[in-house]
Every structure is written in structure tokens, then in C-alpha cells.
Amino acid sequence: MTDDRETSHNQGPTTVNRMADLNMPLTSAAGLFTANAPKVTARDVTVHYGDKQALFGVSIDIPEKSVTAFIGPSGCGKSTFLRCINRMNDTIPICRVAGEILIDGADIYDRRLDPVLLRARVGMVFQKPNPFPKTIYENVAYGPRIHGTTASRQELDGVVETSLRKAGLWDEVKDRLDQPGTGLSGGQQQRLCIARAIAVGPEVILMDEPCSALDPIATARIEELIFELAANFTIVIVTHSMQQAARVSQQTAFFHLGHLVEYGATEQIFTAPSDKRTQDYITGRFG
């Protein structure tokens, strides 16, 4: 195929990307494990913030309906790559993304694609729970309302309840839906944010260190929730806790200095990583 396309956005220099690159070999361990069909495919993704390059040619297949963890020292580009998957980087003026990211085989940086609609398909949960200063009900109803996905109040009530149930929060809040979301505990707020993400019916949920502000019990509840959600959603989680990555994910990707160093089945990464840098990092030997 000679269909060269410009896949960068914003006003940065263009990068030409040959479709033939789609057939290039995946990272070292990708062939070693059997995973679900790829939901998200990245090819040679490069990111600059102004003159500073943050990601160097990242290629990865993220299987659907499973949990993929990104680990690596801070500043290695995990959040940057995560934000490429729902085009959150578009909101950072100095950020330039090049390369190709496909969801279900379709290029998400296609100019005709509305990033707002993309973000309904690819939800995001952040490190610090950030409920809107509104009622619990309104926090969850917000997305379906702006996307106009529900016809009646009755239908909206149903979506709110289902989302809160899936987020494991319904029983705790069903009697106080009209109270402010900000009045919940940290762990409950985070589950509220997950309910909010689920409410618009996403296919992929990105989580950037979703437990780092939570205590161990609240963390365990989120991890349990992640496990349940993986039956229906493709989950990508950035975590600085290797134990968490080992507990919740099926695949783990190790980033270092903007490079995807190693990607493989979680059990392989944590018992027998093949790259020395991965080994040094996960065993706590980084100087």
C-alpha cells in the first residue's frame, strides 16, 4: 500500500507513516502470550513537547477486554502515551503526536473524527478523584446528558443506577443521590469517577494511577472493580506500584526514558523479564 498519510495533528511538522509498518514485528514478548484480539494498536508513536521528545516510536497492541498495565520510572512517558489513546494531548498546545493509533483498526487521529466522541468511547480516570461539584446523580448523568444518549428521565435514572452498580458504589449511595459527590470518601469519589466514565458506554477505560491517593482498603476495592470491569471493557492502567500491576493486569508494558522497553504477559514480566532494564526496575535496582 502506498497510502501515505499525515497522522500528526496540531500545527507541528508532519510525519509520514507507511501502512506497511503495520506489519512490523511487535515488541519482544508480544508473540509469547495469547491475548484477546487487539483493541488499541499503536504504531511508531512519537511525542514532542516543544523541542523535548517524550516518546520514541512506541508500537504496541492492547488486547480487548483485559487489563494492560504501564509501568516505569516517573517521567518515562506513561501518562503521555495514555493521553495519546484518547487524544487528551490535543489539549496541550506544545504537544505534537506523530505515528498511528488505531481503535478497532480505525485511525483515531483521522481529521474527520470528533475528539469529544472519541473520549466517550475512551474514558479516563485520573490520579486524583475529580468529581464535579454537583450531586452524585448529576456526576453520573452528566455524560449521557451532553452526549444525548438517553431519551427520557426514566432511561437516565436507569443508566445512573447501572453505572453506579458496575462501579460498585450503588449500595453505598442509593439513598443520597442528591448529595454532593465531593462529600464522599476518596475511594468512593474514585468509584464515582469510574461510574461517570462508564455512564457514556465507553469501550476503553484509561486509568492514570487511579489508586495513588487511596488507602489500601479503598485501593483493594478499586482493584476488585478493575477486575470486574475487564469482562466488558478494555482497561489500560498506569501504576507506579509494581505489585498493583502484578495483581490486576494480564499484560504489562515497561517504559523507560520514552521508550517501550518490554511488553509481555504480566507473569512473564514479573517472573522472568527479558530486558535488563526491566529486571533492574522491577527488582528495585535502578540507580
Binding site: M242, Q243, F270, T271, A272, Q279, T283
Partner: peptide, 9 residues
């Protein structure tokens, strides 16, 4: 220590 990789082995 929650050992990983070669340490776990």
C-alpha cells in the same frame, strides 16, 4: 520485600 523477577526466583 515483595520480590520480583530474579529476586523472586
Amino acid at each position: 520485600r515483595q520480590p520480583m523477577a530474579v529476586d523472586l526466583r
